[in-house]
Amino acid sequence: MEDKRLDTENEKLLVLKDVKTSFFTKKGVVRAVDGVSFSISKGEVVGLGGESGCGKSITSLSIMRLVPQPAGKIVSGEILFKNEDLLKKSEDEMRRIRGDRISMILQDPMVSMNQVLRVGYQLGETYRYHHKISGSLRDMCIGLLKKVKVPAPESRVNDYPFQFSGGMCQRALIAMGIANGPDLLIADEPTTALDVTIQAQILKLMKDIQRESKSSIILITHDLATVAQICSRLLVMYGGRIIEKAPVKTFYKKPAHPYSVGLIKSVPVLGRPTGRLYSIDGQPPSLINPPSGCRFAPRCTQAKKPCFEIYPPETTLEEGHKISCWLYSRD
């Protein structure tokens, strides 16, 4: 295992090439993810941001091959995980990857756990599935709970999830996610359901665990502040596509896409009274018949004629900062 890790050290862990996921409904084809390409290196923490319905969760479900059936389907594209295409794997092979090499933490900690099984059992479940073991996993589970800083793990391991508070459930879920030492951890809005003081604790925990285990993390969130706190790179999605990719430091200093600029300006900042809050007019686009040009054009204040007709190509502004917008296109 270790050798393999070293070999791929400088390579990309995960590469998505033009992934398209659609839902075939009575009302028409919903193009939830419409040509998304990005890559993640080993040990990188990447934020995937955007508003509800922009396709960020479906992107993560596509990586896990867990898109809701039968309506949803990954139509085309390639998802290369350690240079192997996940879309060509059989269901059995996928099952061996899920929870072992790629694991996921979901939004609502209270409903992500089985309420009638002990926390300890659920913690050991993923490990038991992927390893041949004999004997008890109790010590391992206690160790895991210790790692995620659940107080009194020796007795807590026997508790049921309803005896845990929201923050502690989320800690237990993180413990489950890292039980097998995955290469990639997908966290879908891990702190949205939590209070601010607990959110700060969970973010710190995720940062510490990442530093220790060197696994890559995709953090899916609508909250740009969370991204700024733990990610090194940010991908902004809008209407099923990625519109801007940038290192976090560049993004908050010089956001380029009009949507990103508007998004940053429309969040009230504590202690920085701004007078009137900037707001982006209009509503996010319907993905059933998305506008043919730039998805953001109808709401954009700087939209010109080509914006409504052709989708803008990706332009590189500087190292690592890529944007899909006609304002910056050199053609």
């Binding site: 959110q199 700060a200 604790q201 710190k204 700024a228 969040v267 900042v269």
Partner: peptide
């Protein structure tokens, strides 16, 4: 503990426990 949208202003955890 309110996170700030500024990568140069990383928050420290000030409140332990629940």
């Amino acid at each position: 503990s309110v996170p700030v949208a500024d990568p140069e202003d990383i928050k420290e955890v000030t409140l332990e426990g629940e």
